[in-house]
């Protein structure tokens, strides 16, 4: 009996210790994609700063950020959107609307439009401030087009 109790306690303790590592795959996917967008933001932000004149234009930096953005646009992120990780199913955590899972072609279309705009930005980002400015707006607007349709305003 004593051994049984001991064994039970050990198993319970081990489970308790292991559980943080065995985190929810849905939560992981959400963390991953939110991180992905934060990385996008951190590369796009400085470019916008230059376009708006808040930061001085630097051709080399602009090109690096834009190229990184382009690389990010080519990453496969399909695994970051498991079914059941929408904002209706996971109350209060993500902002991804269920509509995403009902309309994958639509999401892809917005994603491709965004990638195309990023590609155009990357091809001119190092060619001077005016060239950069001429392509920044389309990128921001393509982010917004996806958010307006597939992302909830509130958590």
């Amino acid at each position: 009996m004593k051994t049984l109790v001991k064994a039970t306690l050990i198993v319970a303790a081990a489970t308790a210790m292991a559980s943080p590592a065995l985190s929810d795959p849905l939560e992981d996917a959400i963390t991953a994609r939110r991180g992905y967008y934060q990385v996008i933001l951190s590369n796009f932000g400085p470019i916008v700063g230059m376009a708006k004149g808040a930061v001085e234009y630097d051709a080399e930096k602009a090109a690096t950020f834009a190229n990184t953005l382009q690389t990010l646009s080519m990453l496969n992120n399909g695994h970051m959107w498991p079914a059941g990780s929408d904002n209706a199913a996971m109350d209060g955590k993500p902002r991804a609307l269920p509509k995403i899972w009902e309309d994958f072609p639509g999401v892809q279309e917005k994603g491709q439009a965004w990638a195309a705009a990023v590609g155009e930005l990357a091809s001119v980002a190092g060619d001077g401030l005016d060239a950069l400015r001429s392509k920044v707006g389309a990128v921001g607007e393509s982010c917004g087009a996806c958010h307006d349709t597939y992302r909830a305003k509130s958590f």
Binding site: L41, G45, V48, G49, K52, R95, G140, E141, C143, G144, H147, A152, K153, S154, F155
Partner: peptide
């Protein structure tokens, strides 16, 4: 957050309230 523009008080509330 895609156009990097907001109202003058947008920095004064937390993300949840802002949403």
């Amino acid at each position: 957050d895609a156009l990097f523009a907001g109202g003058p008080l947008s920095g004064s509330v937390d993300a949840k309230t802002q949403g």
